[in-house]
Structures are given as structure tokens and as C-alpha cells.
Design a protein around this nucleic acid. Structure first.
Lengths: 339, 339
DNA sequence: ATGAAAGCGCTAACAT
DNA sequence: ATGTTAGCGCTTTCAT
């Protein structure tokens, strides 16, 4: 395995010239560049990333933080997480950076672990799901001047920072729009994770779109559940007792939809004839149930891509002003809303 | 941010002494060690991983390879992958190593990318899902003497290497054992991914356990499908036409189970009274369907842990003889098999 | 446009 | 048990 010296010697130039070629320094003449490149290829030379990092004082990795002990394990969120991860990796790779996964829950103190990674020059920037973010973490991050980007709109924002999220408001609007277009009149909203920001935003979209269509917003049609199937079923059953009952429902996720479908079936109603149903998220079961579920699809891969782009900008220019990136939702029409 | 020199000066010792303390060198006296440690803490000193790596010629990361363009995207395998990843991370973390995720499909040539990572000293070892493994990759890996571990029993083994997998044979046996114990008599086997090694192994477990209970192995009861819901449903419908029909079925995964359940319902039969059903895998819907599914649960987290342990051994001693690690399955009894 | 040389922060062989 | 010193492989300033 050859190093920069070998290449320099073989090419009959100095190591600095080779280094300049490696780093696309424009001062190098065309001929020299071509020649050195050829020698590099012949020697199958790959620069040592640690030597480079040591010299430039820059790590060549970005960490994606997770906290698997708590909310994430066994959760379907994993599916999103997975795609986000690949979005990130793809962008980083193209910029000669690598993605390292760090599970904060493994460490005694997440603060300490983060410190070790950053001070130890293992990583240059951090991407953090909003679920993992804590005020304490924010403090460490800003104190250490570590570039970081948050995935999912943060609940608290004591200091400004970059984040990326799905455009949940738009999602709520699309759901209502589609239901109105397919001739549903009384649209219920069955959200999960009450109090969560994303639920709030979707609801806001729901309200604005109804209003835009000159339809009344009936607060009785707005319900929340814990996100589990049983709770969703109970809540949906309650909604169906209203007079008049809803003829469509927007569910916060696939599991909630499943609960709602159960309540609908128990009431002897048929989807989509008697009642339409539209679900947020395309996972894990939208296409497996009967009827298949119309969903507000969420391009989580793209969310990863955007997060990576934000962190790249931030690392290149730590004092750049902070940005927010919202990813558009799209609708996947399936059987549950087509009469 | 302080370095080893600052610490040495502040502690009134040489850098080598500090280095020895850092690396738990036993030659250091108790007093010196304590003293230096104190100074290290006071200075909030964290060794620079690149300098260390450059000096020791060792990278401090292990790569987990994926190939997201092909089979993995949108697949439920993601859920497994996720847990495996955390198993790996957990072990690596405890050994001061970090986990980097590399998507080979991003790169023009996976061979080249691997080379860059290893020769560039970015990573020290590689963990590869068997789906991503190719003969070409094996060649590169062995030629470069890169320590690697495969997740999932490999289909081809031109050279010996380490791998870890679920004990699929045991899983097949457990399924049959449980069904027999709960008094089912004619047990069908509906596998997915025909020709796959894991299906083959589970089937072998099925056969041996039936034989062990002095029950006949009726080849007519053994079926395969493409793994999709529709195919599974059709195949199950066919099985139900047999005379006598099966009174239990072992399905290759949750989706297949869903298809089988549909066929069973269409035939007017009730689970678990008329027919028992047991599924491999605990994801994504075993607990969401009705009745809930008894499953052969697969401890994928543990698979990650084992994979990491294997790669650690291999990196510590590249000429260690190769090992195989099988993870035990366990049964999760739910409604679908309890009459 | 290119070269010489110092230095990034650590480890380890050698010396004491 | 501890110190001295020479690298590890690269980048970068300064010279030319």
C-alpha cells in the first residue's frame, strides 16, 4: 500500500504537488496534473483519511444520533428512520463524508459521548431526530459550537437552529381536499400523539382547507387517541355515534386507521361506500389491509437528503444563518376513498 | 481544546506517560496514573482519534454495508435491519469503535468504494448482509485481507468466513412442536422465497420434528409462494382443498400469514378453532391482526450483537479460525394457535 | 507552477 | 517506572 511519498517519487514531483493534485488545487499545470493522476491510478493510491484529517483538523464523518432504549425500539418509526438514514448517507457519500450511527442511550451520559466524538475529532457535525433532542443536548451542542441539524420540527427552540420536517400542514390540507373532491361531506379527524406538534399542524391544515371550501369546522368531529389500535377503535366508535355521524375520517397513522376500520366494521358500515378513510404514512400496512388505504405519503428519504444538505452547509460555514426545510407531502389514492 | 502536550506539561510528566495512562499501560505507577487522570479530567481532555489512528495505523470504525437500491427499499426487512444495526452499534461502542453505514449502491463500483474505505483507513472491518454479498465482493475482501462478517447464512462459500444467522432449523422445529402440543394434527408449511436457504432450513426443522413425533410428513402439505399476500392466499386456498385439509399452517412471514388468513376466511373457517396458524417473524403485524398471530420470534438485535463480536475477534486476530454463530429462536404464543 | 520543510497529536521503540 | 525522540501520512506556508 503506497503513500503520498511513493507517488511523488514515482511521478518525479514533490509531495506537495501530489497533495495539490489530490485537492484539485488550480495552480497545478494541466500536464503535471494528468501525469500525477496517472501515477496515482497505477499505484492504486488512496489518501490516508486520518493523516488528512489530522493535518486539516477536520473529521470526515457526520453522526446520526439515535436513542433506541426509549421510544424507537420495536416502533414502526423505524421504517421512517431507515429511509431517512439512506437519504443522509447518499448525500454525505457524494461529499466524501461518512455516516456514523450513535446510540446515545448506550452511553452513561449522552453529553459526554457527544463531547468525546466531537472533541476526539471523530465527527464534524450531528443530525438529531427531534425525539432525541433535549434542552441539555442543545446546550452542549451550541456551547461546543458543533454544527447540528434536527429532523422533525422541535418542540422547544431556545436558540435558533436548522431543522427539517414534513409539511404536515400541507398533508392535512391534501387529505381534506381529496375527501371533498371524492364527495365526502362530514370529515372527522382522528389524530395520534395528542399535543404533538405534527398532529397540531395537520389539524391546522384540516381546518384551513375546510374553511377554504366554505365547510363548517365541527369540533365534535375532531378527536385524538393514544396512537394504539384499541384506543383508536374506541374513539372511532364514539365518533360514529354522533348525529349526524362523519362520512369520512382522517387518521394519524396506519395503526390508528386499523383501529378505526375495526370500529367501522363493528358498526356494520362499509368502506369506502358508507365512510371514507385516509391515513397518514404509507407504512406499514396501507397496502395490505382491505380495502387498501389511501394515504398521505411522506417522503422521508427526501427528509434525510435535506437534513444532510443542511448539515453540509453548516459545516462549510458554521456562522451561516439558520434554515428550515419543509418536505412536501403527496397523496396515494387507494380503495378506501374511492366510492 | 487541549492536547496531550498540554496535559503532560500540566501534570509535570512526559507525553509518553500520558499516553500510557490513556492506554492503560500497566507499567505506570498508581500515583502517577491517578495524578494524570485528574489532570485529564480537569482539562476535559479527549484524545484526538485521528492522531491516534495515524500513529497506530488503525481505523476506529466498522462499516455496515447495505445495498438500498435493490431489495431493501420499502421492504419490511428494514425493521430487522434496524435492530441488527443497534445490536452492532452497542457492542462496537463498548469497544470504542464507531459504526459507519455505507450504501454500496450509491457508488459506481462497490469494489472501489470498499477499497477507498479500507485503504483510506476509514474502517477496520466490515459487516455484510448476505443479500449484499457477491462473489466479487468476497474476492475483494479476501484479497485485501479485510476482516469481514456476514449476516445471514451465505449461499456460496468459496472461501471460509465468519457468519451469523438465526437458527432457522430450530424455528421450524419449535413451530411444529407448539402446534402438536396444542393438538393440531395435519400441519401445513407455507414458505416464502422458494429456494432460499432459510426456507430450506425451516422446512428441515419441520420435517425432523414431525418425524420425531412419529407423524407422517405429507409432501402435499408443503407449499411455497412468492412472499406476497396474493400469492400466499392462492396457495393457502389450494392447500385447503386437499382431502383431508390441513388443520394448521406454518407461514414464512407476517405477509404470507395475512394471505393465508384471507384464504381461510374466504373458506368460512375460523382461526384458531378450525385451523391454527403460526408465523415466522414478529413484524410488522403479528399483534395487529385478528386473531393476533403466534410467531416464531427472531432475536435480530442479538444477531447484530453476535456479528459485532465476531468482527471484533477477527480484527483483533485476523488469522483466527472462522466461526459461525446461530441465534436461537423463541415462540410468542398468541391467539392464532390457542383453541 | 513547483519544492522544502514544519507541524497536526499521538504512539512506541529505545534509553535510562 | 518514566523520558526522549522518531515517525505515522498528509497539508500548507513560505520560498523560489
Amino acid at each position: 500500500m503506497s503513500n503520498i511519498k511513493d507517488v511523488a517519487k514515482a511521478a518525479g514531483v514533490s509531495t506537495s504537488t501530489v497533495s495539490r493534485v489530490l485537492n484539485n488545487n488550480p495552480l497545478i499545470s494541466f500536464e503535471t496534473r494528468e501525469h500525477v493522476m496517472k501515477v496515482i491510478r497505477e499505484h492504486n493510491y488512496v489518501p490516508n483519511s486520518m493523516a488528512r484529517g489530522l493535518s486539516t483538523q477536520k473529521a470526515s464523518a457526520v453522526a446520526l444520533l439515535v436513542n433506541i432504549e426509549d421510544k424507537d425500539t420495536d416502533s414502526f418509526d423505524n421504517l421512517f428512520f431507515h429511509k431517512i438514514m439512506y437519504g443522509i448517507e447518499n448525500v454525505l457519500y457524494k461529499n466524501d463524508l461518512s455516516l456514523v450511527i450513535s446510540n446515545l442511550s448506550n452511553s452513561r451520559s449522552s453529553k459526554e459521548r457527544l463531547n468525546r466524538m466531537v472533541q476526539g475529532k471523530q465527527i464534524q457535525g450531528v443530525i438529531i431526530p427531534t425525539l432525541v433532542l433535549t434542552p441539555d443536548l442543545i446546550k452542549t451542542l451550541t456551547a461546543q459550537k458543533i454544527p447540528f441539524v434536527v429532523i422533525g420540527e422541535p418542540e422547544y427552540t431556545t436558540v435558533p437552529f436548522d431543522w427539517v420536517d414534513i409539511n404536515n400542514m400541507q398533508g392535512g390540507q391534501q387529505a381534506v381536499q381529496h375527501l371533498i373532491e371524492t364527495d365526502y361531506k362530514r370529515i372527522a379527524f382522528l389524530g395520534g400523539e395528542p399535543g404533538s406538534l405534527f398532529n397540531h399542524k395537520r389539524l391546522a391544515g384540516y381546518r384551513t382547507m375546510l374553511t377554504q371550501h366554505n365547510m363548517p369546522v365541527d369540533e365534535a368531529l375532531i378527536a385524538e387517541c393514544d396512537g394504539g389500535k384499541a384506543g383508536a377503535c374506541a374513539e372511532m366508535a364514539r365518533l360514529l355515534e354522533l348525529t349526524p355521524p362523519p362520512d369520512a375520517v382522517i387518521c394519524g397513522n396506519n395503526i390508528i386507521s386499523l383501529g378505526a376500520m375495526k370500529a367501522i366494521a363493528e358498526k356494520g358500515l362499509t368502506i369506502p361506500r358508507d365512510i371514507g378513510i385516509i391515513s397518514f404514512d404509507n407504512y406499514p400496512i396501507a397496502e395490505l389491509v382491505e380495502p387498501t388505504l389511501t394515504t398521505i405519503d411522506i417522503n422521508v428519504y427526501e427528509m434525510g437528503v435535506e437534513a444532510a444538505k443542511l448539515i453540509l452547509k453548516l459545516m462549510a460555514n458554521p456562522s451561516a444563518h439558520h434554515q428550515v426545510s419543509l418536505i412536501s407531502t403527496s397523496i396515494q389514492v387507494r380503495e378506501s376513498t374511492i366510492k
